[in-house]
């Protein structure tokens, strides 16, 4: 648990975001703590993906985004990544033409500590043994689940302080989803990163999150400890289905 007056790992204040002229985010306030999982929930088109893009400077934003207390809004996406923010984007962002090994090396592009990178490669193969067997394979030929594993491994090889995950369960078989979420829990415990996870599968996300936000058409309509949100009647009916 962070000390009370230490800044949150990530804090957004009055965050607006737009694609060209079309405004999508209308003043979001949220925080992500170090060593914790924060879930961002909402229906299709609510603005979840857009929120992650706003954090990474991939779209035009207004308002404040602070990372470890320092403003990052307005900075270039690659500079934000080098600060230690890894993003598993919508659609997984695989470098299709390159090999699995090259995809992983790109994940560690921003790092100079060779020994640390080598150790992290070994750790990723511990989490995802299939990746080791497919190192020389063209990444575009991996299955959807394998590409998701590759995307997560690529993001972790940045040695991030903050990990943004956009629908890690998307398109995956339930068993693979469970595997990936188990691994993610291990990663949070073992690596002490902060995670902001976007999920359609709300029950899954609320099971591993300690804080959650509910997004509706670009506004946060509910925020609080994940346990409370899980118990909320309205959320249960609309998003959890029981």
């Amino acid at each position: 648990m962070p000390t009370p007056d230490a800044p949150a790992l990530l804090e957004a204040v009055g965050l607006h975001g737009a694609y060209g002229e079309s405004k999508v985010l209308h003043g979001l306030d949220f925080v992500v703590d170090q060593g914790g999982v924060t879930a961002l929930l909402g229906a299709n088109g609510a603005g979840k993906t857009t929120t992650l893009r706003a954090i990474c400077g991939m779209i035009r934003t207004a308002g404040e985004i602070r990372f470890n207390g320092a403003r990052i809004d307005g900075r270039a996406t690659d500079a934000i990544a080098r600060l230690g923010i890894a993003h598993v984007p919508d659609g997984r962002g695989t470098f299709m033409e390159l090999t699995v090994a090259e995809n992983l090396r790109l994940g560690a592009y921003a790092r100079r500590d060779k020994a640390g990178v080598a150790a992290d490669f070994a750790r990723m193969f511990g989490y995802f043994p299939t990746l080791r067997e497919r190192l020389r394979q063209q990444a575009g030929t991996l299955s959807g689940g394998e590409q998701q594993m590759l995307a997560i491994a690529r993001a972790l090889l940045l040695h991030p302080k903050l990990l943004l995950l956009d629908e890690p369960s998307f398109g995956l078989a339930p068993r693979i989803v469970r595997d990936i979420f188990t691994i993610m829990q291990r990663i949070v415990q073992e690596e002490g990163v902060g995670v902001l996870v976007v999920e359609q599968n709300a029950s899954l996300a609320l099971a591993i999150a300690d804080r959650a936000y509910l997004l509706e058409t670009g506004r946060i309509v509910m925020a609080g400890p994940a346990a409370d949100i899980r118990r909320d009647e309205a959320v249960r009916r609309s998003y959890l289905g029981y």
Partner: peptide, 20 residues
């Protein structure tokens, strides 16, 4: 490798910290 990545997939390249 970074130059090839930037040519193939600029969006993902920026996300791993490559100045495209």
């Amino acid at each position: 490798l970074a130059m090839r990545a930037a040519a193939f997939n600029p969006v993902s390249s920026r996300l791993v910290g490559i100045p495209v």
